[in-house]
Design a protein around this nucleic acid. Sequence first.
DNA 1: TAAAATTGTGTATGTTTGACACATAAATAG
DNA 2: CTATTTATGTGTCAAACATACACAATTTTA
Lengths: 236, 236
Amino acid sequence: MTGYLHSSRILVALDCIIFGFDGEALKLLLIKRNFEPEFGNWSLMGGFLNADEDLHDAATRILFTLTGLQNNYLEQLQTFGAVNRDPVERTISVVYYSLVNINDQDPLALKAHNASWIDLDSKPQLIFDHDQMVEAALRQLRYKAALYPIGFELLPEKFTVPQLQKLYEAIYNVKLDRRNFSRKIMATELLLGTGEKDATSVTKKGQLFKLNKEKYHDYLNGYQSFLPEFTELSLT
Amino acid sequence: MTGYLHSSRILVALDCIIFGFDGEALKLLLIKRNFEPEFGNWSLMGGFLNADEDLHDAATRILFTLTGLQNNYLEQLQTFGAVNRDPVERTISVVYYSLVNINDQDPLALKAHNASWIDLDSKPQLIFDHDQMVEAALRQLRYKAALYPIGFELLPEKFTVPQLQKLYEAIYNVKLDRRNFSRKIMATELLLGTGEKDATSVTKKGQLFKLNKEKYHDYLNGYQSFLPEFTELSLT
DNA sequence: TAAAATTGTGTATGTTTGACACATAAATAG
DNA sequence: CTATTTATGTGTCAAACATACACAATTTTA
């Protein structure tokens, strides 16, 4: 029934949950607001939809503005539309979440927006309904990462199996068995050995792998499912 | 960054995908439009968000208007926001999907809106991007019904195990083994026997069950997962 | 009254998960 | 430089689960 003339045109915002991983914990890129409203409080990065702009393009723009990155994993999450969610003016917010490699971002852009990476565990209270948005994003990340190998989006191009394991442990907040995890991952054929060894880590032993792009896209397109057992984990 | 004054206020529509089940096939409640634009073509039921109305309330209102039903399963799916998706005016559409018992609706409301139940398999082409919406809704239904027992929302209060099986076969477009399905379902403890037998079906033998509401809510809240093996099915 | 169809329960097999042992290589402490 | 500690890579085994298939009982249909 779209297409009627109608009087209620409404402000459409976008907010973006940006996930990163530093090798130990899941992190969020948050903004300490140096502008009104809610000056001094923490929030997600956001912006408004322009009249001549696709929704997804707007999310891409907002992400680029903050991180300097353009080709990240970016997926629409949900739209928040309670009447009083923004006290200033009725605004609905289309929420996206993004997975980025924490090393790739533009530090100047971050500084300019007063943004910093915060451990998910020690997240401050956010403005408006942004806490609910983060909660929903984490749920979605957990679901999605169980069926599709999107976790790799959070890692650098080359990584070790234990690094990958730590990532999944951080996402699902569980301890996994090294041996079983390794076997499982290797069986997916998603990892290509590079022959190199990890030089950055404290312990130098891990073999560096990179992603098998072809297999990766097969999994993304759903021809096979990734680690379905994680779908059963209680998501506390 | 919500809260700025900003000039781009945009028309916000809602469209609703309504799933039903007639014992054999999954069905959609669709509208043959007797109004402009796109007069004579098929579309989803939709409407516009009022300025003083929560998003979810608006979806509930639209569903009620068409079906006369108020307490159905109703979940937000995704927001569609391509610039030219609606040729009349820039409109973003927040899409909801709903699961209803096909016997419970108000026939007068359906008539008044020129709506009818159409087999998913023989769906006509819909206006604008509504075909994409239906596709996304089916994907979501398949995902959700694998982890949560929301399929029951499509059945009458009392039903037989074979009826339930047919529903899952329709949702996932597969053939399931009677014996294994029955065992699996009984193990969930979601079914309470009523002692009665099915009088309506051609074959009168099936025992009628009803839903164990308590267990049902446990599953919905994610304390256990339902039939996770379906998450692995190829969703063609 | 017999045959066909549908429902309910049982059993066997192959696969996968999850728990744990051992060997090897690298880093660290003395 | 050597021994100890730490982290990584591969292997085995039992329990749980999915899958395939057999048979009995009841109702419908011919």
